[in-house]
Amino acid sequence: MPFLSGLIVIASLYVGLIVAMIAADAAYLVTDPTGKGDDGIVAGFGRLVRPLAKPEIRYAVKLSLISCAITAILSVWVAVPLGYLMSRYEFRGKGIVDAVIDVPIVLPPLVVGLSLLILFQTIPGRAIERVFPVTYAIPAVILAQFSVACAFAVRTMRVTFDQISPRREQVARTLGCTRGQAFWRVVLPEARGGMVTAATVAWARAMGEFGPILVFAGATRMRTEVLSTTIFLELSVGNLEAAVAVSLLMVLAAVLVLVVLRWAGGGQARGW
């Protein structure tokens, strides 16, 4: 029994920490900042909503939703072929490709942002900038989100394809399918749950992205400000209330993500 109690103590410490963090955010809003004590849910709700009505923050909400959606779609679009390639084919240098895909996951976020910034200072980078401005503009927000989020999507899709027996594609090919037809007709329908998971994970990563966006896209209000930037900007001017309100909004988004993941089934089994 001491063993089990040990497990339970350690587990509940961590779970308790997570719950306490979120509860503290919520409690902060319903507690009267003037120190006169609890002034109730209604006033608290007002404090939650008021900052969200600011045009800058509404812009950030909109940009976050749009950029995260684009990132999620792009990530799945890249992760499906890349995950399939890594799962089904053996080729020279596969180990290296595999390691490279993991780089954005292990790299410090600020380094990702700085690397992107420098990439667009090179000759080909500048050439792109002349036609299509990226740095310190909205495309930089999406590219910064995508470069990290996609790595998670690729990992998810690879595990998804690993779990689908190649035998089914082989049978489909004996039944008259080309490799491509076998993929579209047999593999992809089976990978649907994995694709929802990959998109959701990518979306969530994109939503939480901060470092690379700050470095590569800047934190210009009404221009490249996303929700994580808002928290940073509001905090830096001492407006804790708005920072917490936006944080709670992001907690809500995270809860939604978890619900989708549960619904898509077996997020835990997908290797992240």
């Binding site: 035998r167 082989q170 489909a172 090919r173 004996t174 039944l175 008259g176 047999v186």
Partner: peptide
């Protein structure tokens, strides 16, 4: 494989989990 005209039943059967029996027969 598609051009060989062979019917193949592998050991693990490899039925398609997203399809009904009718869809298997018509595949």
């Amino acid at each position: 494989p598609a051009d060989r005209g062979v019917g193949y039943v592998p050991q693990d059967l490899a039925l398609f989990p997203t399809m009904t029996v009718r869809e298997h027969l018509g595949f």
